[in-house]
């Protein structure tokens, strides 16, 4: 375990040094990462002048959802970049994954250490800015419990979407054609939960409650942070399921990953 961590730290060092070699393109990437997120949020913020609410929520309240999601997804994308299904699929096809299997270190450590997209910092920083804005305008009541719970919510989402990345990558051991299906969950899912869940049609919300429990990742915790009533009457612990959902899906993803590696070893893809 200690060795795995040591290797991970060194591999990360390599990634970071490599990226900083290309200063111009790195700054451009960082800047455009901020801009992508900013544009999307700006489009929403600008129409708020006219509409003033979305499903009964103010801009500040939606910004809380949006900022929290952006921070989490940004961290996830940075840490789990090696498992980005598109890139991982390519590394399997080009044989780079074989090279990883030929080294005497944990596969997970090595794949995680094979990519660390620093430019995602742009997204994380912008997300933090939006969250700060949300906290300021909503004037929410901070309690110690809320302060302590906030990082756990972020962790929950990082693990959930990290798990989705791993599942998507594992699928590429079988086929590269269906990556798009998992993209609906990762990109569609993150877009979905950056808005209040009660605005969606019932069938859609139910899918993302019972089939994919994404409603507990962001929406319920934010109800708790903003002291808003639960429109769906779930038990009082519902806001605190986020870390659990994250850990559970991550563990399931790891099990699927192990199964996938075994399959890969028996077919060579």
């Amino acid at each position: 375990m200690r060795q795995a961590f040591d290797i991970y730290r060194r591999l990360l060092g390599v990634q970071i040094r490599s990226q900083l070699q290309y200063r111009v393109s790195f700054s451009f990437d960082l800047f455009s990462a901020i801009l992508v997120t900013a544009t999307e949020f700006a489009a929403l913020a600008l129409v708020f002048e006219r509409f003033e609410q979305i499903g009964g929520w103010t801009l500040g309240e939606v910004a809380f959802l949006f900022g929290l999601l952006e921070i989490s997804f940004g961290i996830m994308d940075m840490v789990f970049g090696g498992f980005d299904p598109q890139d991982f699929g390519a590394s399997v096809r080009h044989g780079s994954f074989d090279q990883i299997m030929l080294r005497p270190a944990h596969l997970l450590t090595q794949v995680l250490g094979s990519q660390f997209a620093l430019r995602r910092l742009g997204r994380i920083v912008f997300g933090a800015g939006v969250l700060l804005f949300a906290v300021t305008v909503t004037q929410l009541d901070w309690t110690l419990a809320k302060v302590l719970y906030l990082p756990l919510v972020v962790t929950g989402m990082v693990l959930f979407f990290g798990g989705l990345y791993i599942v998507g990558s594992t699928i590429t051991f079988w086929t590269v054609e269906s990556i798009e299906a998992i993209n609906i969950l990762t990109y569609g899912g993150s877009y979905l939960i950056s808005y209040p869940m009660h605005i969606y049609q019932n069938w859609l919300r139910r899918i993302f409650t019972y089939l994919v429990p994404a409603i507990f990742l962001n929406y319920y915790p934010v109800l708790y942070f903003l002291d808003k009533p639960d429109p769906f009457g779930f038990p009082a612990f519902a806001p605190f399921l986020s870390p659990l959902v994250g850990v559970a899906s991550f563990v399931a993803a790891l099990a699927f990953w192990r199964f996938g590696v075994k399959h890969y070893q028996s077919t060579g893809s």
Binding site: V47, F51, Q53, I54, Y195, P196, I199, Y200, Q201, L204
Partner: peptide, 10 residues
Amino acid sequence: LLRVAILLAL
């Protein structure tokens, strides 16, 4: 679908 929900909520 998501964009419809967002616009209708607005």
